[in-house]
């Protein structure tokens, strides 16, 4: 069975088991208390509901279906060259090694003399070792309700193999350090019709857009929130997304033009967020609103 079909079956069941979570999109009732306090209360209630929902989902996380698909794709001989990624792709810890690879990327790869994040490396392997065309992969790189690109499933599988491990993104090679430093500047760069940078929303503690709390990604305790739960099964739209998509969608909301898929800029940004999260434990692919 296709993951999308299983998900569409499993999800209503899970939702039915927890009606409170299903109602989370409704506007909270109007209360006649001090507005700021009431908003904080409502937010807490919504968060609590979602946390409960997440607990219920923990044993049947839809992300697992994409992990399974990704594992198949990793092990199968595929592409024009009929080679498997398991026998050809080095994610930084040796050919075919997936355990711990996710929490140690972005990292420097000597064969390309470049820093790559995990999705970029997987795409690199698909092109170089399996013979897929980069243009074909980059044409529609993000999931929608009818299509989950192969790199998304592969990243989800690789990420699942780092569950419970500490984030330890290396900062040894000069290019790793340079990528982090450039990423910090990408994060602060204001431009576009709204004068926004990443830092406009994610550069201070305790801010919200509407009721959505905004982690301060310049600090470790905030940055880890950008790492945890991704790749994530997103309730909105019911699709699996990776951090590549998350960065892309942030730039959309920032009113920027679109960053290239698996481009240097995105790698730099992921390096900044990832290194800032170092030392925290990664909990594996998650569920997002």
């Amino acid at each position: 069975m296709k993951p999308s079909i299983i998900v569409s079956l499993a999800l209503p069941l899970a939702l039915a088991a927890l009606p409170a979570a299903g109602a989370k999109s409704q506007k909270p009732p109007v209360k006649q208390t001090a507005p700021a306090a009431a908003a904080a209360e409502d937010k807490d209630a919504t968060t609590a509901e979602f946390e409960k929902f997440r607990e219920v989902m923990e044993d049947s996380n839809p992300a697992e279906l994409f992990e399974m698909k990704g594992e198949e794709l990793w092990n199968e001989k595929r592409g024009p060259k009929q080679v498997s990624l398991a026998e050809s792709c080095d994610l930084g810890l040796g050919i075919g090694v997936v355990k711990g690879a996710y929490v140690q990327t972005p990292r420097y790869f000597a064969d390309v003399d470049q820093v790559m994040d995990v999705e970029r490396r997987i795409v690199h392997c698909m092109v170089e070792h399996q013979g897929f065309k980069r243009e074909d992969i980059a044409k529609k790189p993000f999931s929608n309700d009818t299509h989950t690109p192969e790199p998304v499933s592969l990243v989800t599988y690789v990420a699942s193999q780092s569950k419970g491990m500490k984030i330890a993104i290396p900062q040894k090679h000069p290019k790793e350090i340079e990528t982090y430093r450039i990423g910090a500047e990408v994060f602060q760069y204001r431009a576009g019709p709204y004068d926004f940078s990443c830092a406009t929303c994610h550069g201070a503690d305790g801010k919200r857009i509407r009721t959505q709390q905004l982690p301060n990604l310049t600090k470790p305790q905030g940055a880890i929130k950008s790492y945890l739960g991704w790749p994530g099964y997103r309730m909105t739209g019911g699709v699996m997304h990776t951090l590549q998509w998350r960065m892309n969608d942030c730039f959309r909301q920032q009113r920027f033009p679109e960053p290239g898929y698996v481009s240097d800029s995105v790698t730099a940004l992921l390096s900044y967020l990832g290194v800032n999260s170092n030392g925290y434990t990664y909990k594996g692919p998650g569920i997002k609103r």
Partner: peptide, 24 residues
Amino acid sequence: YRAEAIAMIKKDFRSRGIAGYERV
């Protein structure tokens, strides 16, 4: 690093819909 970041953004970003490249 700031100049390098700006150069990188100018290299990597492209127009989409009404969000034109000139915005970088």
